[in-house]
Amino acid sequence: MADSAANNAIRPATRKQRWTWAVQIFVVLLLLWLLLNGLDRFLAGLLAAAAGAGLGAWLVSGQPHPWKPHRLIWFAGFFLWESFKGGVDVAWRAMHPGLKINPCFSSHCIDLPTGQPRTLMVATVSLLPGTLSADLSEDGRDLEIHALMPEAMASVERLEAWVAWLFSIES
């Protein structure tokens, strides 16, 4: 959630990218409306979703990164499983009579472009087993991670690979 506009290498989004972005927001907002309100007053929901999509496309900063919906499903699966393990892991450590933790800080250089990929990375690190994104450097490259035990750092690399795959980023 931490970085958006502060980086110097931001190019404005093209018209096509803004349209794609708008359509994606529109679909999500409309689904949310249907979920909360059902089918009555559908027209109002349509208008509200369109307004939200327009606003989102207008305000988008930098280039939105294209992502593939079927990859998002796999990513969600990976994330769910990891956060499940994270919960079980930390619960076990908290309940263990000997408190099996060895907390430490460790810095990780993020090898992802600014915008959505990096934001997603910083946001999801906190829910992996044993890692917590504690701080981000001024330029948004170095992520300071707090780990419950040094071994937990290994999963950060895997997460980064997953995020790169989701946004089809070549490395």
Binding site: M1, A2, D3, A5, A6, D135, L136, S137, E138
Partner: peptide, 10 residues
Amino acid sequence: MPRDDADDGE
């Protein structure tokens, strides 16, 4: 917001 206090303590 994170960016607002970026100049203290970083």
